[in-house]
């Protein structure tokens, strides 16, 4: 079961990074800045990838 979940979601760090990206996107869109989110989310995602490199 744990192998199955790991394939679906990855480890806790992976989930945390993606959750942070999605949360930031939701907050920006809800605050009324969806077009700015288009310029913020990609660098944020790349920063998340950088965080995961050493995990």
């Amino acid at each position: 079961m744990s192998a199955f979940l790991k394939v679906l979601f990855g480890d806790a760090w992976n989930v945390a990074v993606v959750a942070a990206i999605v949360l930031a996107a939701v907050m920006m869109v809800e605050a009324g800045y969806p077009t700015i989110a288009a310029y913020v989310v990609p660098p944020l995602t790349l920063a998340g990838v950088a965080l995961l490199i050493r995990r």
Binding site: G10, V18, V22, G48, V49, A50, I53
Partner: peptide, 20 residues
């Protein structure tokens, strides 16, 4: 989109770590 991110960020991070 969320599932692709869950999947893609770990693939990309792993590939970068291996390449580096």
């Amino acid at each position: 989109g969320v599932f692709l991110l869950l999947f893609g960020v770990r693939w990309l991070a792993k590939a970068i770590a291996r390449q580096a």
